[in-house]
Structure formats: structure tokens, C-alpha cells
């Protein structure tokens, strides 16, 4: 009986946390727009969340593209169809790897930083003092960070795919000697804008929403102690990664399930 009560308690507290997360998102995003105040704050966060994530995204994209090219070549060359390496690299990047890996890296690099920053602001009473100055911390602190993550992740994902394709080309064409005409032509013929590029972009948008939402909520809702902040940062990375992988399956099933 105790086990049952415990289960109920856990379920209720998770549900309550979900409700709080919804409220925080609603209160930070639904308000009178103040573009003159909000835009500079947003740009600052785009720099911290997006621009500073560029290096890890570009380097990872390059290596993943190169590995895809190498693996694809060693398999496809047995069947004499190594020209299809370009198609394989591009499709796997655009449809899957770019949005998913970018979101996972983003959760680790930017998401954890957002959580820790907001959590520390809470622990050092900076959020309270904003409130007492008459400024809503949800609007001032949470909203610009949320929008920055939401906007940056799709762009980072596109950059990841682009760099990855070039990585594949470096290995496939420059190193292994695939004829570059067929490498690029195969890619061009098989990648469809709506079915592949747009669907990949939709995934990135969804991941951007979910990862940033989890990150700002965990920061805002954390216990204002050092232990609380460390737990919140861990939760951000774990929950965001699981959410990305789970949602990726659902989105893939919806987008490509009938193929």
C-alpha cells in the first residue's frame, strides 16, 4: 500500500512540475511586447547561446560527416555503388543526425549553462531583487534566453548539416577518389527540399523548443543551493537528451513512417 502511495506521490509531483513548467513558459512569453528592451537582451543571449556554440557544432559536424563518408564508402564500394556516398551522407545528416546531434550537443553546451546561470541568479537572490525592483524576471531573464535557444538551434542544425556534407566530400571525393560529378549529382537528385530539408528543420525547431524550455525551467525551479543547482544542471542534460531522442522517434514515424 505504501508503494502505491509513493507511486501516486511521485506521479503527482511530476505532474505539478509539468504544470509549473507550463506556467513559467506562458508567463514569460505571453505579455505586452517591448521590442526596444527585449531585442538587445535577445541579441546578447543569441551570442552566448548560439555564437559561442558554433565551434563545437562545426567541429562535430565536420567529423561526423567525415566518418559517414568513410563508413559509407567501405560498405558501398563492395557493391560498386560508391557514387551513392554523397546521397547517403546528405540524407542521414539532413534527416537525422544534424537535428539530433546538434540538439544533444546544444543541451550539453548551452542548456546546462542556461540552467546553471538562472539557478545561480536564484541562489544569490538576483531574481528576488529583480522582482523587488519591479521587473518580472520571467520576462527579463527567462524570455530572452528561451527565444535565443529556440531560434539558434535550427540555425546551428543547418550549419551542422552543411559542414557535415563538406566533411563527407573531403573524405569521399578528395581522399578516396569518388568522381565528384556523381557524388554531388546523386546528392542533388535524392535530397528533396520538402521531404528532407524541411522535415529536418521542423525537427530542429521542435528540439530547440523542448531543450531550451527544459533548461530555463530547471534553472528557474531549482532549489537555491549548490546541490540544487548541480541537480538541476544534470536534470537539464538528462531530460533534454531523452526528450530529443524520444521526440525524434515520434517525429520520424510521423514524417517518414508511410514510406
Amino acid at each position: 500500500m505504501n508503494q502505491l502511495a509513493l507511486l501516486g506521490h511521485v506521479a503527482l509531483s511530476k505532474l505539478a512540475a509539468f504544470g509549473r513548467a507550463g506556467m513559467i513558459l506562458f508567463q514569460s512569453l505571453v505579455a505586452k511586447p517591448q521590442p526596444l528592451i527585449m531585442f538587445p537582451l535577445f541579441i546578447k543571449q543569441v551570442y552566448f547561446v548560439g555564437v559561442l556554440s558554433l565551434i563545437i557544432i562545426v567541429v562535430s559536424g565536420l567529423f561526423i560527416g567525415m566518418v559517414l563518408g568513410l563508413q559509407g564508402y567501405t560498405i558501398l564500394v563492395d557493391y560498386g555503388s560508391e557514387q551513392a556516398v554523397g546521397q547517403m551522407v546528405a540524407l542521414s545528416l539532413v534527416r537525422e543526425l544534424a537535428p539530433v546531434v546538434t540538439a544533444l550537443l546544444f543541451a550539453g553546451r548551452a542548456g546546462s549553462a542556461l540552467t546553471a546561470e538562472i539557478g545561480l541568479m536564484k541562489a544569490t537572490e538576483q531574481l528576488s531583487s529583480l522582482e523587488m525592483i519591479g521587473v518580472d524576471p520571467l520576462r527579463r531573464i527567462v524570455a530572452p534566453r528561451f527565444w535565443a535557444g529556440f531560434v539558434c538551434l535550427p540555425i546551428l542544425s543547418a550549419i551542422f548539416a552543411l559542414v557535415g556534407v563538406y566533411g563527407g566530400a573531403i573524405v569521399g571525393v578528395e581522399w578516396l577518389g569518388i568522381y565528384d560529378g556523381s557524388f554531388w549529382a546523386n546528392m542533388q537528385n535524392s535530397v528533396d527540399f520538402y521531404d528532407d530539408v524541411l522535415n529536418g528543420l521542423i525537427k530542429a525547431v521542435v528540439f530547440g523548443f523542448v531543450v531550451t524550455w527544459i533548461a530555463v525551467f530547471q534553472g528557474y525551479d531549482c532549489m537555491p543551493t549548490s546541490e540544487g543547482i548541480s541537480q538541476a544542471t544534470t536534470k537539464t542534460v538528462v531530460y533534454a537528451s531523452l526528450a530529443v531522442l524520444g521526440l525524434d522517434f515520434i517525429l520520424t514515424a510521423v514524417m517518414f513512417g508511410e514510406l
Binding site: T124, E125, Q126, S128, S129, M132
Partner: peptide
């Protein structure tokens, strides 16, 4: 206006 115990300056 409120003066917090820790100061709570924006760092």
C-alpha cells in the same frame, strides 16, 4: 526598495 542581506547585485 529592498536591501537584501546578500546585496544581490547583478553580477
Amino acid at each position: 526598495g529592498m536591501l537584501f542581506q546578500s546585496g544581490a547585485l547583478f553580477t
